[in-house]
Design a protein around this nucleic acid. Structure first.
Lengths: 223, 223
DNA sequence: GGACTGTATCAACACTGTGTCGAGAAGTTC
DNA sequence: GAACTTCTCGACACAGTGTTGATACAGTCC
């Protein structure tokens, strides 16, 4: 939970044109205030019902001043999502390692449990990211990259298990991986937001894991 | 494919306040023109980039006149989606019957192939529906109902296969069904819109079906 | 043929929200 | 204390939504 001083990261290095217009002086507080306001409001109501004015007011500044710190509402949300994604990646368990150490079921559970922990704590942000994807190319690209990372991991797992004879042949590993990762994305999202129909919070992982195991190993995996 | 005179359906019965403000005279053409314009534009660009004015102009009327026919842009899209969903449901194969007649793999394939045919022909409309869900409760409810229908079908299949000993026990059938249906929704959507990563159009069903079979039957189903 | 009624149409308006411009205040540096 | 950079906001221009009120244009009905 505590921040690990892991990799290169000068307090905040906005990738592109996001965040502030460069500089690095005092108004850091304002920038933080905007981000905090956004996070708070997003847990209250959907992105579409939050205006730039709300963010500005919440941060104690005027609307034009908001634009000094961020080029748009989307940019604020993207910054938040960047961080959430980084959080999720941070404590990441090597899935292959976990499998080897604890066996398929427990290993998978550990990896996924860990992965979704970050998202579970900020449903509003997750929803905002999802809401953004249709209209915002940058959001789409970011999520694509995240998915691609997971797919690559899972592909490796499937190929490894097949190569050592633990899993039977079948459709190309990458294709299976894509489908399974997509299932997880959709199911977790539905559960997180309480869609109807969706699985209960404490059941999702059990069910998803059971499907993964059967899909990957081609049999009912006992314990 | 051809329209079956199946259930109760007076030409078009707008459920709630959607569509025209009642009446049933001539301006039917205008209403149709609006719907056609919307369908056309949706295949060109996303919903967010289509204004009420675009729809009005496309139908050869002024913006205020548009509001005589529909209460909002969303209402137009919802009407279109209603019809698409009805189309998809129309030629619907009884999945249980298909399984019994052609066996698990071929039966599943026939059912799903048939189900997704309608969607595949109008990706723009599908995307619009998806874009609408975050902001529009009615769209959410409509899609919930559709999903619920599929889940119920699949639950019945799984329970039947278990009861006759063809499928092993496992997580509650409904929970499996929800996850599998969610996987299909997500995967088909990603493929339809060419997301990255996603499966190729001609591979998606093969892979999904393989996962379904392994998940339901707990083994690699031969043929 | 004139009064009555419901359908259909649109110019003009009121409103909400976005993003920009330009004039300055406030702080730092030499 | 002049010059520079950072920061702030009132006032504007714009795009889009949804509403109002006047008006035309049928058809009846008597």
């Amino acid at each position: 939970m505590a921040a690990l001083p892991e990799a290169k990261s000068p307090p905040a290095a906005a990738p592109k044109g996001r965040g502030r217009r460069d500089t690095r002086a005092s108004g850091d507080d304002r920038e933080r205030a905007i981000l905090e306001t956004a996070e708070r409001l997003l847990e209250e109501r959907p992105l579409a019902e939050i205006s730039v004015d709300d963010l500005a007011k919440g941060a104690g500044i005027s609307r034009p001043t908001f634009y000094f710190y961020f080029p748009s509402k989307d940019a604020v949300v993207l910054t938040i999502i960047d961080r959430l994604v980084a959080d999720a990646a941070e404590g990441r368990e090597e899935i292959l390692t976990a499998l080897a150490e604890s066996g398929p079921r427990a290993g998978l559970r550990a990896s996924l449990e860990n992965l979704y922990a970050a998202f579970r704590s900020r449903p509003g942000v997750v929803r905002a990211g999802s809401d953004l994807r249709p209209t915002n190319g940058e959001a789409r690209d970011l999520w694509s990259a995240v998915m691609e990372g997971w797919v690559a991991d899972v592909t490796a797992v499937i190929e490894f298990e097949r190569s050592r004879g633990a899993a039977p042949p079948g459709p190309p590993a990458r294709e299976m991986a894509i489908s399974l990762v997509q299932m997880n994305e959709r199911a977790q999202y539905a559960t997180l937001l309480g869609e109807e129909p969706s699985l209960d919070r404490d059941r999702v992982l059990d069910v998803l894991i059971e499907i993964w195991l059967r899909a990957i190993y081609g049999e009912v995996v006992s314990d």
